[in-house]
C-alpha cells in the first residue's frame, strides 16, 4: 500500500511524507521546506523509520527518530521528531483508507 500526508508544523515548516507499507514500512521519503543539519543526515532519519511496524505507536516512532537525531548529532530546524512521526502515521492512515475505498 502507498500513502502520503502533509503537515504544517506549528511555528515551523511544511513536512510531506510518502510511504509504502505492508505491515511494516518498506519505503519512506521525507520532504518539505524544513532545515536539517547536516543535510545528508536525512537518510539516517529515513532509515530509522524503515522496517518499523505500521502499528507502532506514534510516540515510540518519535522516540526512535529522536534517538537517531541525538546519536548522529542532527539539528532540526522547523521540524521535530514528533511532527515527522505524526505525519508518517497520517500517511499510513491515508494509505489504508484509500486502499479500503
Amino acid at each position: 500500500m502507498r500513502g502520503s500526508a502533509k503537515k504544517k508544523v506549528t511555528g515551523g515548516k511544511l513536512i510531506s511524507i510518502r510511504v509504502e507499507f505492508n505491515g511494516s514500512i518498506d519505503k519512506i521519503e521525507i520532504m518539505g521546506d524544513f532545515f536539517l543539519h547536516p543535510e545528508e543526515s536525512i537518510s539516517y532519519i529515513e532509515e530509522s523509520i524503515l522496517n518499523t511496524r505500521t502499528d507502532e505507536p506514534e510516540d515510540a516512532l518519535a522516540q526512535r527518530i529522536s534517538n537517531v537525531a541525538e546519536s548522529k548529532k542532527i539539528e532540526m530546524i522547523g521540524v521535530t521528531p514528533e511532527a515527522i512521526a505524526s505525519t508518517v502515521k497520517m500517511a499510513i492512515r491515508n494509505g489504508m483508507e484509500s486502499n479500503r475505498a
Binding site: 515548516k13 511544511l14 510531506s16 521519503e29 521525507i30 520532504m31 518539505g32 521546506d33 524544513f34 532545515f35 536539517l36 543535510e39 536525512i42 530546524i77 522547523g78
Partner: peptide, 30 residues
C-alpha cells in the same frame, strides 16, 4: 530546497515553456 520534491513544488512543464531553469539548492527551505 534540499528536501523538497521538484515535481511536487514546481510546474516543470510551464518552466520549460517559459525557459525558466529549475535547480535544487544545497540548502533547506522552500
Amino acid at each position: 530546497g534540499r528536501f523538497q520534491s521538484m515535481n511536487d513544488e514546481v510546474n516543470t512543464e510551464r518552466c520549460k515553456s517559459l525557459e525558466i531553469d529549475c535547480v535544487r539548492r544545497i540548502t533547506g527551505g522552500g
